[in-house]
Structures are given as structure tokens and as C-alpha cells.
Nucleic acid binder design. Structure first.
Lengths: 151, 151
DNA sequence: CTATTTCGTAATAAACGAAGTTACATGAAG
DNA sequence: CTTCATGTAACTTCGTTTATTACGAAATAG
């Protein structure tokens, strides 16, 4: 199955936008992410729909953050993307006539529901600021490593 | 996204096999599940590889259980199927050069790992016997309902 | 005002993986 | 030796995500 990687992509884009204070073009973001400008516009457009980012056309236009990093959770982003299906495995038939299959579905659905609830809960607890902090840590470690090698 | 429904399918098949004591043909199972005999053989073959079922050719041949219902968990079946990817969402790039993307991946992977662990844990706690019991409950309720309507 | 930049969006193609299908070989039982 | 049933390879179909092409709309520089 092909995985939906849009959440990953938008996080990548949003952090780059946070690093640089100025608006970034779809072209620029597409290069960062390794995709196509149109894909960026399509995906970022969903975030704009819920007020997380702004876009401007023409010279010096592009995409910029509309909110504070601390105020956005991964869960909000997941929702902004239309809450795509979380699981790549699932029931064969959602409304089966067969009682055996109904039983299988009922038991599996319960397990899936719990796992999904946990995932969304974790997503709800992670903000863009957390990711930014994680990046800073790694950036520091990276610089330190370079210094050590250079000396 | 197209979900992998093989776990659901084999559960359905295994329970039907448990209901009837005799070997069931791929043809028969395919009809139960609503698929193709070759697909059944392909999938059940994976279970045979780990000793969960047996197959026999020729007259009176077909598929039969090789173990006790209480001794098989959903997790074992998931493993027998090759541990297919659980999530339909994921990182865009598994080994990124960009530090920003590495940070995103690290944080997301943690959340996914926790949710996957929970799901597999639940799968490990559910046996075929549990599913069979769930079916019995539903079967009883179904018969009761029919009686009520008939009277 | 016109050229350039950049977003907005529709339409279409490409890429990928699961499931379905066809075809035929192999082996067991009557 | 015929029939039934699995074993398996090869190929097709189908659904979904991502990429690409094409062009329109708005903002700004000169």
C-alpha cells in the first residue's frame, strides 16, 4: 500500500517556514521537501483553509505561518488534511451479512479503535514548538560534531 | 488507500473451518469470504508455512486447522502474513539528509511506534477462541431474535 | 500599463501495491 | 485413468497517492 506522507511533508514545510521568518514560495518549499510546487500548494491550501498558514501572490509572495508554533498540534494538522485513514490493514467488508465476519470485524475494530485513539492522543500532545525544539537539539549536536572533526 | 484485508480474511476462513469439523476447499472458503480460490490458497499457504493449518489434495482434500483455537492469537496470524505495514500514513523519506526532516521523522516515529505496540499487544491478547466465543454470542442472539419474530 | 512573479486549480498521467484471474503442473483418491 | 483439489507462476485489474502539465488570477516592480 502506498502511504500518505502529507503530514510528514507539511511538518517539514512548516518548520522550514518557522526557521526563516519570511514567506517561502511553493517552488522553494517543493525543493526542500523534494516534491512538486503544485503538490505543495495543494497540501498547504488545506492548512490555509483552517487558518494555520497564509499565502500571498506576486513578488515577495509565498507561504507564511499564521499562528504560534506552540498553538498547533500534529492532531490539528491531521484534521486539516482531512483525517486520512490511519491504518493500512482493516476489514475486508465493512457491513457483512455473515455472522462470522461480523464477529471478526467487531473484535478487530475494537483493537484498531484503541490504537487509533492512542495515536491521535499522542498527536494531540505534540506541538510544532516541540518539533522545533527537537530540531534545535539536533542542530546543536550537528554543529558540535563538525567542530570536533575540524579541530 | 487500499487496505490489506488478509488478516480479516484469514480470520473469517479459520472460524468457518472451526465451525465445520471437516476440511474445506479453497473453492468453498473463497465463496464464504467473497474472493477467489487462488487468493485463498496463496494466503492460507502462509499460515501453513508456520504450521497453523494443513492442506490436502485430491478427493476430500482442502484446508483444516492444525492447532487449537486457544493457541492462536491475531498477532501470530499477523506475523504469519509477513507483518504487513500497519499504518497508512508515514514519513515521506525514511533516511533524509535534512536535519529538519530527521527531527520530524524522529518525533512521528515515536508516536507510531507506541500505537503499533499497543495494537500488536491487543492482537497478542486475542485468540481464535475469543473470536469463536464472540461468534457464538452473536449466533445465540440471532436465533433468539428469529424466534421472537416467528412467535 | 505591461512584464514578471507567484498562487489557484483543473485535468491528466505515472507509480505503486493489493487483489483478482488465467493457466497449467502436481499429487491424492476413487 | 479420471476426477478433484492444491501449488504456483504470470498477468491483469483496480484504487489510491503523488507528480506533471496547463492555464487563469492577482499582486508588484519598473
Amino acid at each position: 500500500m502506498k502511504r500518505d506522507s502529507r503530514l510528514s511533508s507539511v511538518l517539514h514545510a512548516l518548520l522550514h517556514m518557522a526557521e526563516r521568518g519570511e514567506p517561502l514560495t511553493s517552488e522553494h518549499l517543493a525543493t526542500c521537501i523534494g516534491t512538486n510546487p503544485v503538490v505543495v500548494r495543494r497540501t498547504m491550501g488545506l492548512l490555509r483553509n483552517v487558518g494555520l498558514v497564509q499565502s500571498a501572490r506576486g513578488h515577495a509572495g509565498g507561504w507564511s505561518l499564521a499562528i504560534d508554533l506552540k498553538a498547533v498540534t500534529l492532531r490539528q494538522l491531521h484534521e486539516a488534511l482531512g483525517e486520512p485513514a490511519v491504518f493500512a490493514i482493516g476489514n475486508r467488508n465493512e457491513n457483512p451479512h455473515c455472522l462470522v465476519e461480523q464477529s471478526v470485524n467487531a473484535v478487530m475494530d475494537e483493537a484498531f479503535a484503541e490504537a487509533e485513539a492512542l495515536l491521535l492522543d499522542r498527536f494531540g500532545a505534540i506541538t510544532l514548538a516541540d518539533l522545533s525544539a527537537e530540531f534545535s537539539r539536533r542542530h546543536m549536536a550537528h554543529l558540535k560534531e563538525r567542530n570536533k572533526n575540524a579541530s
